[in-house]
Amino acid sequence: MHNRIKIKADSINFFYNKVQALKNINIDILEKQVTAIIGPSGCGKSTFIRLLNRMDELVPHTSITGKIYIDDVDIFHTSADPVEIRKRVGMVFQKPNPFPKSIFENVSYGLKINGIKDKSFIEEKVEMSLKKAALWSEVKDRLHESALKLSGGQQQRLCIARCLAVQTEAILFDEPCASLDPISTAKIEELILELKKEYTIVIVTHNMQQAARSSDYTAFFLLGELIEFGKTQDIFTKPNDSKTEAYITGRFG
């Protein structure tokens, strides 16, 4: 199977207040594949993934060199609008962060801010997104209750549904299961495999088994550098770099 390149990072260097957090990162992320990013805490995984939909801009005093392309569009070009990029590339965060609004309003939020007013279209889209996020059966009778009443795992799936309602191309997951129990984690993993059919997925994870189970490609970061990148199978069975091997066998990090 030959998938085309969806997201391309080209010689990325990133600095917080002159402190370098990413060093010369080059990665090709393939369309409709799951790419896992692993590495010890503080190695720059979040920093990297947040660049991919320009969420890095929320932190002041940063600088960047190099380029990131989504479908050959340079997303840091002065003509690129971060709002437009984020409508294509969604993000699910480490801690579930539903809005303090109803379940329905959470999912329809992205449509609403896009100026969509057609009620039946919104209702359809909400139902479809909740179904895709494997949450529909659990919430269909209480769509107008507060989203904060859901369990952590349900909240995280709601956040996924919220992306699915608007974002059509790629979803970035930054340790989506870090605060979840094993059962909720399994559900999210299952979901990611399902979403892969339609979306390009990048997932940061601390959990080796999770990376091994759910990803097609794996990137190993260490101290802001990309040590190794390749097919997940290869990374986990015959890593080229001794540091990769040490990390995946749990000898450090």
Partner: peptide, 12 residues
């Protein structure tokens, strides 16, 4: 976190 959520959904 909820500001980030909103911005990441393409809100201005």
């Amino acid at each position: 976190s909820i500001r980030e959520a909103s911005l990441s959904l393409g809100a201005t």
